[in-house]
């Protein structure tokens, strides 16, 4: 078997207890465990103590103070079907429902998904494999095999929910030794595949807040993988369009497109201002967005699939995502 390394476990029932347990050097939170445990079985990390979050009261989903508030411990399968999530953040519901396979979604949590370690074909392997490779920046080595000569790890952000939530301007609340703080998710990720979140030592994410849409909106999440289940995203695009009124043909007020599965941060696509006033059902709109995505987003050979291919079809999937929104018409959410 792929045995886990030795560690202790703590099972706090309050956030304060959890923060205290996390203060120990080498402590790590574990929620569903569906990312952490495979990585530990591959000996990527050697925590002294795993702090189980499953007993914390972090599963609630509610609308509060103009935001959809989701506990970090909410389970993906529940989010995918939750009426509030479907009503207020349909692209998140969709993303959550596309993570991994059905049984993993019964374990995986939103907090864990947002903290999913970055992934790379050269590192998510057994110790023997990595030894044969000679290691890399993220694992006992001094080279990057994805960007030869590169000094920064570009392992891929592979969370399905992160791009969707960044596109929705979500914030994240963390509790730590210094108290609680709230950050914009867009500012939370950093360009270093070995440490890609802004989580400080001993911190624990507790809540994700999605501001309610100020007006009519269309949003979607597009994922492409080889198989229709289980696989991590190879193409990952979240799109949000705020509209002048509630018709898919209404003028666009604001657009936000976020692409995942590139390097270690979700990529916010820029230069979309010209879309203001354009209409989603105008093919030129989709073409313009696809062109910007194609120009700004370059999939890397970090994931176990042909990078050139991923580059080639990324714009296609952007157009398809928009076409699906248009086709759904007023029947969205």
């Amino acid at each position: 078997m792929l045995r886990l390394p030795g560690f202790r476990v703590a099972s706090p029932t309050t956030i304060a207890e959890a923060v205290a347990a996390l203060a120990e050097p080498g402590a790590r939170p574990i929620a569903g465990g569906t990312d952490l445990l495979p990585n530990l079985k591959h000996r990527l990390g050697a925590p002294t103590v795993l702090v189980q979050l499953s007993r914390l009261p972090l599963r609630d989903v509610e609308v509060r103070a103009g935001a959809l508030c989701i506990g970090a411990g909410a389970v993906l399968a529940d989010l995918a079907e939750h009426p509030l999530v479907r009503a207020h953040a349909p692209s998140l519901a969709r993303a959550a429902g596309l993570v991994a396979g059905p049984t993993l979604r019964n374990l995986g949590t939103l907090g864990g998904n947002l903290h999913l370690d970055t992934r790379c074909r050269y590192v998510n392997q057994t110790p023997l494999w990595r030894e044969a490779l000679g290691g890399c920046l993220k694992s006992h080595g001094d080279r990057c095999h994805v960007v030869p000569g590169g000094q920064t790890c570009v392992a891929a952000l592979s969370s399905d929910c992160a791009p969707a939530l960044v596109a929705l301007d979500a914030t994240l609340t963390l509790h730590g030794p210094a108290g609680a703080r709230t950050v914009a998710l867009a500012d939370y990720y950093c360009a270093d595949g070995t440490a890609h979140t802004g989580r400080a030592a001993g911190e624990l994410a507790t809540e994700i807040r999605v501001p309610l849409a100020p007006g009519p909106r269309r949003e979607t999440y597009v994922k492409w993988t080889v198989r229709k289940s289980i696989d991590f995203p190879l193409i990952s695009i979240a799109m949000r369009f705020d509209l002048a009124d509630d018709a898919v043909a209404a003028p666009i007020v604001a657009a936000r497109v976020v692409v995942g599965a590139l390097a270690s941060t979700p990529k916010l696509v820029r230069k979309l201002d010209a879309l203001r006033g354009q209409r989603l059902d105008d093919p030129a709109t989709a073409d313009a967005i696809a062109a910007q995505v194609g120009a700004q987003c370059k999939p890397l050979p970090n994931l176990p699939y042909d990078a050139d291919y991923r580059r080639a079809v990324l714009p296609v999937h952007v157009r398809r995502g928009i076409a699906a929104l248009v086709a759904a018409g007023e029947n969205h959410g």
Partner: peptide
């Protein structure tokens, strides 16, 4: 609920 038991800690 159906879950993969290889990714659940015994203690959990």
């Amino acid at each position: 609920k159906a879950v993969p038991s290889c990714l659940v800690l015994g203690s959990a």
